[in-house]
């Protein structure tokens, strides 16, 4: 790691002030992406603004028809939250399958969403549930937030403060993990809200998380695993690497989508 100065603000507001003042500063959340990247010298911020002491960025509340999760809430806290388990059990399940127990004790929802790793789990949930990303300056819909590989609509110095998930009638996630990295080789989140159905795919897209419109149409007609019979995702625009080629990943999208719907409908 290259040297940096360390700052530990007590509120998101102080953090924003420090970010604006320090040149080349970066936010530190759980550090489970950023610190490995810095060790490899792929990132070399001159200052780290640690959000760990910002109590205003932690916690989970139910607000009307939404579950609102603070950016510094860990994966383990989301997985164990009685509020999330009751309102959106598929989201709790997703959080409980990120990495391993130790990663879940440190990694945060804000860090995962800001990082937008193409194989990360949360982006699929945010896109399928049509979540709102709240920053210190504005609110963004998931659709406009995730813009590409490791790319988001976040601007320099902008901090995610919380994420608001609408409570839907049915939601579930299925993940085919890469057994070595534990990230999603393919992950599919399905959500049904009234007559609207969304299917979001992570792990597979050349430019990150995306929706699968053909599956959404089929599931709108009838929300059942059978509706996806014979439906094939295209291998065009699908990622190929040493772990899986585009055809295999495309096939997995169909399998995972079906599994997610089966779980959402209790079948």
């Amino acid at each position: 790691m290259y040297a940096f100065t360390y700052h530990r603000p007590a509120t998101a507001r102080q953090a924003a002030g420090l970010l604006a003042k320090k040149e080349d500063a970066k936010i530190l959340a759980g550090g489970h992406t950023l610190l490995p990247t810095m060790k490899q010298r792929l990132a070399s911020p001159s200052a780290l603004i640690d959000l760990g002491a910002c109590a205003d960025l932690k916690g989970i509340v139910r607000k009307g028809r939404n579950v609102v999760i603070g950016a510094m809430t860990t994966h383990a806290e989301v997985a164990e939250s009685a509020i999330v388990q009751e309102a959106i059990p598929g989201l709790a399940w997703l959080a409980s399958h990120i990495g391993d127990p130790h990663v879940r004790h440190r990694g945060t929802i804000g860090g995962s969403v800001a990082n937008n790793d193409p194989a990360a789990d949360y982006p699929a949930a945010l896109l399928a549930l049509d979540a709102t990303i709240v920053t210190n300056t504005r609110k963004l819909g998931a659709e406009e937030f995730f813009t590409g590989l490791y790319e988001t609509a976040l601007e320099e110095g902008e901090i995610i403060t919380r994420i608001s998930f609408p409570i839907v009638s049915k939601a579930s996630y299925a993940k085919f993990r890469n057994p070595a990295s534990r990230y999603a080789l393919v992950g599919v989140f399905v959500a049904k809200r009234g007559s609207d159905v969304r299917v979001a795919v992570t792990g597979a897209g050349e430019s990150g998380v995306f929706r699968w419109p053909e599956a959404e149409a089929a599931l709108k007609a009838r929300f059942a695993p059978k509706s996806l019979d014979g439906l094939k995702a295209t291998a065009k625009g699908i990622n190929g690497d040493m772990h899986a080629d585009p055809e295999y990943r495309a096939h997995l999208i169909g399998v995972m989508a079906k599994e997610a719907v089966a779980r959402a409908t209790g079948k």
């Binding site: 550090g31 489970h32 130790h102 990663v103 004790h105 440190r106």
Partner: peptide, 18 residues
Amino acid sequence: HIDGKAVKACTTLAVSLD
């Protein structure tokens, strides 16, 4: 264990544990 929870000490800054 940090505050009773298992954590990877190779991916945690000591200064963040005040």
